[in-house]
Design a protein around this nucleic acid. Structure first.
Lengths: 250, 250
DNA sequence: CTCTTTATAGTCGGTAAGACCATAAAGAGA
DNA sequence: TCTCTTTATGGTCTTACCGACTATAAAGAG
């Protein structure tokens, strides 16, 4: 259960007892595909939890911070060459002594938002990785405490788009207000009134900026929509509350 | 910089390179005294940062989670025999490779709220601990990255009392609305209209419950105020926004 | 050509919040 | 004792916002 070297202490800490832990990062990577919220999950090939799905992740290397390690893992698991600009946010740390039956592992969890779902490369250290619909039973119980981590991540994203401009992190550089509304509907699992949503977003200074000039996008049905890009604002005042908003704890 | 035993790996992890880290908890413990927000700080007696103030904290023991370690440290540093019921919330994890010049230390930071400021006992592993006014220059730069941790903790508390019933965690079991308002004013550093604050709090179901019967508290000047206790609610809908609320990032 | 779908503009009523006023009830100081 | 100050509490007024709703525009599907 303990890492070797437990009884050795570097100079300066001789008076204190401490145990060295393995530190990992776990990533809850979300995207929107076909109007539904999806999460990137790998399939474990070895014990424990062999065959079950798990969040992608890995060890923090000696010269890395948890944030650096998370960005590296994000690039590796998604196959994206450049993850700068993607939203990558530290969630919290999970440190239950029994959370990994093999050894003592402390895991720093992150939530990441990816605009366009690129196909996942099959290689790497993970057996397989897929974008699976969140919360629809498309996957069984996750390995370790990853069900809880994923639920916490979803909570964080859900309240994040309420109070900040986070929703644009799901969108491509230029997007329509319908696409932005689709982000809220996918994350919250609730429908929003298009007209009221539009009024609210446009009334928030710095949330979105219109792309002037040739600013029409065709592709789907209905009247072509104007294009917007993310504005400079980061917080939403007042927040864009959920429709049936009730009892969302801290 | 590295803990000995770095090149040894337990069974099951042979294919992976990882470095064992020391894991600590750091606590930002707040209270309200004399209408001002104060934070518990220790004075370091040894290098590095000898003589500077620092957040209380310590190592996570082998059989502890970070939460357990934080509760233990909270009891040790405040001298409180029972810390159950106190608000103790994980903030985030700080893992910069250079944050401790002696060795690689990953620290899980917590924010704690204490109602009544008990006098700090002088003993323990910390040289000295005092409740110092937050953000008034009563202490110089803190050791390590504790200035940033403390600022993050203050941010979290500030937005926490906006969206949740967290403010009652600063109050004794029974309190007046004036005392509750004092919490908001101390944390936000801004004045609030007593009448509007009262209307808002009483209109939020489950925020506070009146203590019926003998429900008057004397002690200060002015008309005696009715007593309330914390209600069952945990979230505030809609939130109790700051007066000059602008630009509060995620 | 008509129907469906989506975007966009506008209206209406209710609620919440800030600013402000008025009264009540205590202590402080003359 | 009387007055002033301080705090609690109740109320009004006005503005802003938000949900519900209607109407129009502009595309594709059949």
């Amino acid at each position: 259960m303990c890492v070797p070297g437990y009884d050795k202490r570097p100079p300066g800490y001789d008076k204190y007892a401490f145990e060295p832990f393995a530190v990992t990062v776990d990533l809850a990577v979300f995207t929107i595909r076909d109007g539904a919220l999806r999460v990137l999950l790998v399939e474990r090939g070895q014990s424990p939890y062999a065959g079950q799905r798990a969040l992608p992740g890995g060890f923090v290397l000696p010269d890395e911070s948890a944030e650096t390690a998370a960005a590296r893992e994000l690039a590796e698991e998604t196959g994206l060459s450049d993850v700068t600009g993607l939203h990558l946010e530290q969630l919290r740390t999970y440190s239950d002594p029994d959370r990994d039956p093999r050894m003592r592992v402390v895991s720093v969890a992150f939530a990441a938002l990816v605009p366009d779902p690129p196909e996942v490369r099959g290689g790497g250290d993970a057996a397989r990785a897929d974008w699976l619909p969140y919360g629809t039973g498309a996957y069984g119980p996750l390995a370790f405490d990853h069900d809880r981590i994923l639920a916490d991540a979803h909570d964080r994203i859900g309240s994040g788009i309420e109070n900040t401009c986070l929703a644009t992190a799901f969108c491509p550089p230029e997007f329509t207000l319908g696409e932005l509304r689709g982000v809220y509907e996918a994350v919250w699992g609730a429908g929003l009134d298009p007209a009221n949503f539009r009024r609210k977003v446009l009334a928030t200074p710095g949330f979105v900026k219109p792309v002037h000039g040739a600013a029409r996008l065709t592709g789907g049905r209905g009247k072509p929509a104007a294009l917007y890009k993310a504005g400079p604002a980061t917080a939403l005042h007042p927040p864009l509350l959920r429709p049936t908003a009730e009892g969302r704890p801290s």
